[in-house]
């Protein structure tokens, strides 16, 4: 739905915090800790996503509200969550989490160059990120396309009423979808933190959420592989554009790319595979 980008931003935001668990465990350079941290992030983000869906979106859905209302609600929720972390969380955690400043980074992994490809250094962090992303993407893709739940999701996306007639619980499916979204966002949060350790702040993740939305739209909303492709394309073009035009033009390149692609393929690169996109 339309409000996802604000949603994702704040969920990523929440997903940052569980790496604070590793804070207490001291410095340990192991994948295990990273894995635990990632699970923690997924948990918080996924939980928040489901919670938001229950509290804010379900009543709207019940009333058949148009999509602008969903967007505004998502924006409202993202404000609430952001400010919660900004003001309330420090009070709840005695100042360790939240607040105005970014969290002190927890350096579990030091970037070390492993090898080079064509002159470009590839660090261990890069490897971890790419590998994790691929694994997660593969897992999600298999889930959507091969499992019963995934079929349910696709059915509800195409025709909610008939899906209900076929015994698919729409509410459950929607909750599941939000859960998956939240989990992935939480995972992404960890990967992002590996690369940008100073980014854990209440206002972090917003731009990322927008870029994520761009990537999804670029690839074609409703299409998992399209989203992957869109994300990859966006990342590559951004960095390439950075080299060609200069760092400050990076975001312009990203948005310009989006506009150009949408002009020629109004439904994204891989189009819409899940039936008509309802706005």
């Amino acid at each position: 739905m339309l409000g996802m980008f604000g949603q994702y931003a704040t969920l990523m935001l929440l997903g940052f915090y569980p790496s604070g668990n590793a804070y207490d465990k001291g410095v340990a350079l192991t994948v295990l800790y990273l894995g635990i941290a990632m699970l923690g992030g997924m948990l918080v983000a996924g939980g928040a996503a489901v919670g938001i869906e229950r509290v804010a979106y379900r009543p709207l859905r019940r009333r058949g509200a148009p999509s602008l209302v969903f967007l505004i609600t998502a924006i409202g929720m993202s404000f609430i969550i952001q400010e919660f972390v900004h003001f309330v969380l420090p009070k709840l955690t005695g100042g360790t989490l939240g607040g105005v400043n970014a969290q002190q980074p927890i350096r579990l992994v030091q970037p070390e160059v492993q090898f080079t490809i064509g002159g470009a250094p590839v660090t261990n962090i890069t490897l971890v990120i790419i590998l994790s992303a691929l694994v997660l993407a593969l897992a999600t893709d298999m889930f959507i396309n091969r499992t019963k739940f995934g079929r349910g999701i696709r059915a509800v996306a195409q025709d909610p009423v008939t899906a209900t007639l076929m015994g698919v619980s729409r509410e459950r499916v929607i909750m599941l979808t939000f859960l998956i979204g939240g989990i992935l966002a939480g995972a992404a949060a960890l990967l992002y933190t590996l690369r940008v350790p100073n980014g854990i702040i209440y206002s972090g993740g917003f731009i990322l959420g927008i870029k994520a939305f761009c990537a999804a739209v670029l690839g074609g909303i409703g299409n998992l592989r399209g989203a992957l492709l869109g994300g990859l394309l966006l990342g590559v073009m951004e960095n390439y554009g950075q080299v060609v035009f200069g760092t400050e033009w990076r975001d312009v390149v990203a948005f310009a790319l989006l506009i150009i692609v949408l002009m020629f393929r109004p439904t994204g690169i891989l189009g819409e595979s899940l039936g008509r996109a309802r706005a």
Binding site: R61, R62, G64, A65, P66, S67, R276, R278, A279
Partner: peptide
Amino acid sequence: MSTHDPGGIGAGGEHGDEHLASSGRADSS
């Protein structure tokens, strides 16, 4: 905001299911 896209002319026309054609809104009932 309704941004319907029911497929233009003849939505569901040929196969007589036009009365089930959704208007594109969540829970239009």
